[in-house]
Each structure stands twice: as structure tokens, then as C-alpha cells.
Design a protein around this nucleic acid. Structure first.
Lengths: 117, 117
DNA sequence: AATATCGCTATACTTTTGTATAGTTAAAGT
DNA sequence: ACTTTAACTATACAAAAGTATAGCGATATT
């Protein structure tokens, strides 16, 4: 992959792509979003379970982030009309696909660490 | 080959996985990192050119972020001993590879937008 | 000699993000 | 009846990130 090739490719990059990158970045940035997503993906679906699974997170931040993730269509909040009411947070289909982004991040992060040794 | 093997091994190890993702996230998060990287990739290498290319960025933020990107091994700052002194910021090899992460982010962002219509 | 350009730094400030701590409602267990 | 658990909300505060504005030292241009 030559430099000139890369640059010309980038010059073709439409506005939509920039928007898409920003969407993705918004979904995963902040101190708690990845830990929360990881915990849900790992199998924790209830508020208390997620809270217990993430060290030092406050209820305020957990609520706030869960709401934002729901609003962004990454997770879904299910209320089960049992007694007592049970609430479960689960990844949406689209949310599950974010693993591909995390994979790319792992790959880059690992090889970058090696390169800076 | 043994590299790929190692990467997949590390993916099984939660701690390394998390560290690598955090490294990557730190490199790209914040308001100005992506615009700066994009501008450099686009062909702007000098301070004033990057500044002129990015709307509303202040010199303070540009300096701060350039320093951080350099410290993180994503870009390199070259001082050319000419008169006047010329300074050029360029992507490191590792820095260029971050395009693969951006690609994954575009893909997810685009398909996620479609899914939430 | 005066002005402009490059590559920044300095200081003060505002906004956003995250923390600490306490309280609420409803139901369940003891 | 009393305590415990789930799933949160409310208020106040601190820290981090970003903005606004001014200026500096060296060279170059007019």
C-alpha cells in the first residue's frame, strides 16, 4: 500500500464516512462504556450483576451510560412483568456487531505495543 | 505467522485484550485526534497547514494533541535544519495502520445507522 | 525599520465528564 | 414487623477536557 494510493483513497472519503466514524466513537468512548458492554457480552444482564461486575462504578454512572447505550441502539432494556419485576439489558443485533470494531482495536493495539518496544 | 498466532492467543487473555483496546481508544478519543490524524494522512504535515485545515482548532489544542500523538508513537515530529527551521509531522508506520481501525469503525457506523432507521 | 509568518506557550476561563453520598419505591425473605 | 434486595434518582462536588485570548522568539518580506 503506497502513500499516494492511501491519500487518494482518503480524498474520496465521503462525509457519511466521517459521520459513521464519529457515531462509532461516541458509542465506545468514555470511561465506562466498554466495561459495561464487555460485562453484558460476558453474560451479565441485570443492573446489580453489571454493577457487581464492574469495580468502582457508581449507580449514577451505570444508569447514565445504560440509558445512553439504549438511546444509541446498542443495547435494549427489557422489563419482564413478573413479581418482582425483572429488568434485563441485552445487546441489540447491531450492538453485537461492535465486536468487529473491538477486534480491529485489539489487533492494532497489540501490534502497536510491539512496535514501540 | 507466529505473530497472528500470538495475537489470537492474546485475544483469549482478557487483561491484554482490555489493555490493547484501551491503548487504541486513547489514541483516537477526544475532539481533535481524528481530525488531526485525517489532516496529516491527507497530506498536511506542517503546523500551520494542519491548523488551517481544521476549522476552529486553537493552537493550544493542536500543540497538546500533536505532543500526545507523538508520545504515543502515532506520529513523528521532524525538525529540518534549514533556514527558517521547518517542522513536519508525519504518521509512523504503526500510525498508518490505524486506518484498519477506522475502516472497522466506518463499517460498523454505516451498518448501525441503517439498522436504526 | 516596520510588519508578517511560523511554531508555538501562557493564563484564565467554561463545559463536560465523572465521583461521593444519600435517598426512594416496591416487593421478598426472616 | 424488620431487614434486605433490585433498580434506580437526587444533589453536590471535583477533575478533566476544551475554549478564548494574548503573547513570544526567530526569521523573512516590504
Amino acid at each position: 500500500m503506497s502513500d499516494l494510493q492511501t491519500i487518494s483513497e482518503i480524498k474520496k472519503c465521503p462525509v457519511q464516512y466521517v459521520l459513521a466514524i464519529n457515531d462509532t466513537l461516541n458509542v465506545i468512548s468514555g470511561k465506562w462504556k466498554l466495561p459495561i458492554l464487555a460485562s453484558i457480552l460476558y453474560g451479565n444482564h441485570r443492573y446489580k450483576d453489571i454493577q457487581a461486575n464492574i469495580d468502582k462504578i457508581t449507580p449514577r454512572m451505570l444508569s447514565k451510560e445504560l440509558k445512553e447505550l439504549e438511546l444509541n441502539g446498542v443495547i435494549i432494556r427489557n422489563v419482564y412483568d413478573s413479581t418482582p419485576v425483572r429488568i434485563e439489558y441485552k445487546m441489540t443485533e447491531s450492538g453485537k456487531n461492535i465486536l468487529s470494531v473491538l477486534d480491529a482495536m485489539v489487533d492494532w493495539g497489540v501490534s502497536h505495543r510491539k512496535s514501540t518496544l
